[in-house]
Design a protein around this nucleic acid. Structure first.
Length: 190
DNA sequence: GGTGCGATTGCA
DNA sequence: GCAATCGCACCA
């Protein structure tokens, strides 16, 4: 079982932008098949908020792929991109409202818990489609409270790779720990 | 049943 | 700058 310091279910059942902001500094944890646990501090995330968000997969409605996004917060939404990489999202909010936070980068004093970019992150943590719908309150995957991150250390920017989303592409739904070396994306968004 | 493309990455 | 590589959304 995850430790007492694991974030409770109620943490995830809140507005997506709040959860995204509050996930910075938290510790993504994954118990590996061998029994050891991989840990990485979350330093970059993006929010995908509701059925109107043209950058969100859920803007097309409830489909086989996006079903987890419509569930109650606290589970994973994992999809494959470009037929090559997986992306790990934390589903947020109440049941019926499609929203999630994409985990884009982690850092760790241990090299094996560091990853810059959503595709690299899932590779490092051994996350694939088998984790789609998995709970963040279980004993294989969870997030620990970590250390708080002050507002002065947080920067908001536009999301990466969603130029097709019109005005939604310009919204500052990406949250990063300012100038952190592990951030992905263009330098202009650090 | 056919088609087009993507919340990315690594290599030329 | 562009190929890799495939699930899936959408149209017929």
């Amino acid at each position: 079982m995850p430790p007492e310091t694991s974030l409770p279910g109620a943490f995830y059942v809140r507005p997506t932008l709040d959860v995204a902001r509050d996930l910075l500094g938290r510790i993504l944890c994954r118990r590996l098949p061998g029994g050891s646990t991989l840990r990485g501090r979350i330093v970059e995330v993006e929010a995908y908020d509701g059925p109107e968000d043209r950058a969100s997969h859920a803007c097309r409605g409830r489909t086989a792929r996006t079903r987890p996004m419509f569930e109650r917060g606290g589970i994973a939404y994992v999809y494959q991109i470009y037929g090559v990489h997986f992306c790990l999202n934390v589903v947020t909010g109440g049941e019926g409202y499609p929203a999630a936070v994409l985990l884009r980068a982690t850092e760790s004093p241990r090299k094996d818990g560091s990853a810059s970019g959503p595709g690299r992150l899932t590779r490092v943590f051994g996350i694939d489609r088998s984790f789609d719908g998995a709970s963040f309150l279980g004993d294989e995957l969870w997030i620990e409270t970590g250390e708080p991150v002050a507002d002065a250390e947080v920067k908001r920017t536009a999301r990466i790779g969603v130029d097709y989303a019109g005005e939604w592409a310009e919204r500052d739904f990406r949250f990063v720990i300012t100038s952190h070396p592990a951030l992905s994306g263009p330098r202009s968004l650090r």
